[in-house]
Design a binder for these strands. Structure first.
Lengths: 192, 192
DNA sequence: AGACTATCTAGTCAACGGATACATCGTGGG
DNA sequence: CCCACGATGTATCCGTTGACTAGATAGTCT
């Protein structure tokens, strides 16, 4: 006899979100099935709809979580590199470590189709990238701003990750390519 | 009475491919329905299966076509810029023009999940990027190779496109950011 | 002419996302 | 104390989709 699971789950939203994150990481967003998700958590397939009215809103929520995770990793990398001369390389390494090991999640985060609540995703992304801008404050060539340099640096990292994940670049070339990339950016001298 | 359409389509593979490309460009790969596709072309839903045994193989074929298109655009940009000093900027502009105006197609091309025949996609990508490597032949800092520089340059462009397409960067900032990016790469002096 | 092969049709299946009506729970006002 | 009400989850139904299979059709080659 089944252990008479309670009618109300008690923490459905969180449970669904966690399970969904796991599935996306393992099998990719396109393989995410709302019904399978509900079954895995132990509710009917219509129950999660209370919290995620449709599939896209769930994916958006996952993207937001992903950006929070990425932001944390970047902050860790900054904090772990007190020496400004190694800080840029450290961040770059952390970014690619994340984007490659969590390729499915990264692909979801940077998907260009977010639902009506896509603003939340954009805000999450901006927050995650904030640590990057600080790093490039300092001596810059005239005409450049920390924001712009950070954005191009970010683009380079993200693009490199994309090339790795789609198979154009082999994983064992990444280290050297990060060096090649980092060499093109100023090694800021830390907090002003 | 219906005009007695012939039993054999005569050019099914090509017709399906073209219609599929149109759908992907307009609505994105996730909205691509094999059945709708077959209906639009005027055959039964199982007919295209002869050429694309499953959905993934069709997507891969579309990605290959996309890379062919991108390669052509890049070659055009190179040929249209006889002056080596403007060549890099020209290519960068062409790349972003393609990646932004064909965002859905680009997302499909750089999706990290390609089927068993993903090799074809990789080869197509490599061929598309070939013009880039040639541009960076010339004076390079020691330790750099044209391949590596071209790859980082490519990554920067692709990353920038991704950031635009996912909403982190506004379209009207792209021009300035391209300049910021291009400034970090040597303006090769043309064919050696 | 007759077999052979490529191509397409027709019918079936399980799974999915979405929608709706109903059951269950717990909580706060009378 | 209890009961009405909102919140949460269940039970069903629907149309669509990708995938599979058996069989019809049409060129082709001998």
């Amino acid at each position: 006899m089944t252990p008479a699971r309670p009618y109300h789950h008690g923490n459905l939203r969180q449970a669904v979100l966690e399970r969904a994150t796991a599935v996306v990481r393992e099998r990719g967003a396109s393989e995410l099935s709302l019904r399978e998700l509900a079954a895995a958590v132990g509710v009917t397939h219509a129950a999660p709809r209370r919290y995620f009215p449709d599939r896209q809103q769930l994916l958006d929520a996952l993207a937001v979580e992903g950006f929070a995770l990425l932001g944390a990793r970047l902050r860790e990398a900054v904090d772990a590199s007190p020496d400004p001369s190694t800080r840029v390389r450290s961040i770059a390494g952390a970014y690619l470590e994340f984007a490659i090991s969590e390729a499915n999640l990264a692909e979801l985060m940077f998907a260009h189709t977010h639902g009506a609540g896509g603003d939340a995703v954009g805000e999450g992304a901006a927050a995650a990238f904030a640590p990057l801008v600080r790093v490039f404050q300092g001596d810059l060539p005239p005409g450049s701003t920390p924001q712009r340099v950070a954005l191009i640096f970010l683009a380079t990292l993200q693009g490199l990750a994309g090339l790795v994940n789609c198979g154009v670049v082999a994983v064992d070339e990444v280290g050297g390519l990060i060096d090649e990339a980092v060499a093109r950016f100023p090694q800021g001298r830390g907090e002003p």
